[in-house]
Design a protein around this nucleic acid. Sequence first.
RNA 1: GCGCGUGUAGCUCAGCUGGAUAGAGCGUCGGCCUCCGGAGCCGAAGGCCACAGGUUCGAAUCCUGUCACGCGCGCCA
Length: 607
Amino acid sequence: METSPLALAVASTIVGVLPKDVALSVEEVAGLLGPTPKPELGDLAFPCFRLAKALRKGPPQIAQQLAAQLAEAGGSGVVTEAIAAGPYLNLRVELGHAAALVAGPLAEGQPPPADAQSQRVMVEYSQPNTHKAFHVGHMRNLCLGDAIVRLLRADGYPVVAANYLGDVGAHIAKCLWWYLDVLDDAGRQPPDEARGEWLGELYSAASNQLDEWKDAADGGDEEARARLEAARARTTEILQKLEARDPELTEVWQRTRQWSLEEFDEIYRWCGVEFDRVFYESEVDEPGLAIVQEFLDRGVFVQSEGAVGIFNEEVKHMPFFMLRKRDGTGLYATKDLALARLKFEEHEIDRSIYVVDTRQSDHFRHVFLTLAKMGFPQAGQCEHVPYEMVELPSGPMATRKGNVILFRTLRERMTSHLIDSYLAKYRGQWPDEEIERTAHQVALGAIKFGMLARDVNQKIVFDMEAWLALEGDTGPYLQYGAARYASILRKAEAADKVLDPALPHDAARLHAAGAALTQLEERQLVLELAQLGPQVHRAAQDLRPSVLCTYLLGLAKAMNRFANAKHCHVLSSEGALLDGRLLLVQAALEGMRWGLGRLGIEAPARM
RNA sequence: GCGCGUGUAGCUCAGCUGGAUAGAGCGUCGGCCUCCGGAGCCGAAGGCCACAGGUUCGAAUCCUGUCACGCGCGCCA
């Protein structure tokens, strides 16, 4: 939904008095409507700049003229007042209509409607490597990809959520070298839990040792050089044996790989993330090399210094895109070609989105250019969604240097902090199970919102203490707004004040309920709520969950202002005013819940 | 060197399809629980929107250039 039903209703009133020589549709006028800088000025502003040329008049005169015409046409329902203010036409809406349009459907749990789209979209994200630890940096990608999937679905698109696990490559050879050759039988015994993380430690140890030997060897240490050479030979051997499906090594690979996969599954479960398809690098390894041979034979790819690749002159600073090394083995890029083909053919997708950090921008430019030259019609519909890295105050996260915060650490600290600082007081009052579940939901809300609220091209410097401070612009602030509203409704129900389920279907009562809302906080909340659909649509179209985050902060602010205002008290209201307030509270609660849901965040009933 | 990105309040960031006196959170200072949740609300102080040109009735926003910082740049992923 590009514009709200409220904006459309207002726009249609304006179009009714627009001079004939202005060819603006209701949708176009609705698109031009925006908020006023101050609520005293009006609810919506119509800028008249666009009309100046067609009418050959100054915008201020046009605004004057429109204001006069609207006044003459009388209270046409939704617009009650139109005041020219310079080049703007400021409009006051009638809350009976506005609330009926905006709050009526929401209160019944109907999210803003979206047009059904036929374009089938695949979103690939997460892509962690097995045999490595899952840290907070991986979390940004996971949250982004998941939110994009949810946003596109909310916007009407059929979406295939895809993961792509790195289960082959040099890092695995290093890990297995350490596991097989360096550890003894006792050392090879994995822990009962977090085995994937344990593998990550082995990888890290191996990597550090190799770096150490390399430094020493560069410094002239011959013994280190010998050890380094031997280790390198061994990791190469492991890699080759794995590629040759050596039974013994394949068994070790499968067993250890499984430890990582189980850990990822557990993390995804905790995060509430589900994939429709999981690809593995190991399944596109050989197909990738076959593609290289095929297109080398067809003359699309070329040989260069013994390697095979393609010259994409479009990428001026680095035209050669290597697809097969001199030794005949493939690269990351090789697999990406096979993966792309698999996506197109297996899932018949029309559009393919890759959520991968910004350092890979050149890589994906090459991949997409190459796919186009290979003749894939969907190549033009491939899109890289880049995002900046998560760093620590001490610098970029590096597993090898130990400068890393594991996701498990963040999760545990956030959860225990929530219980200790906020939820412990409910022990005995609430079921233990609810306390645990709430801690989980709020921890997830804090983490996901923290990862999503920042624009993708801003890097995130992760500071644990700052993340644990849950005041201000945070996920829990949004959840708090919802919990507070749920609490109002619970108390109202206890006082036998409930929203009549028939009210949203009774036009006269619905209008009366809305019209009874005369307070500024009520008006502002209705206007804010009207933006839910348009903002979700924009976030989906731009593939930017941060757009929705920003909007939801504004909604929560409006919700809390209403809840805090003594003169907007729900429980002490009666009649149409009570109906109106119950309607508004219910609508805002549902709207916030639904909006949070598009970010993959749940709103607990109390917290 | 080339490419991509960033530069807005003390700090972290919105705003960037051009439009009304540039907004928010944190921090600082000052208020608000005899009535729906203080994870909240209200107010104050705080800004040559990196710099210089240009386009325009109008520029934080578009164009050009400069500076600073980050990332990437053939046999890693």
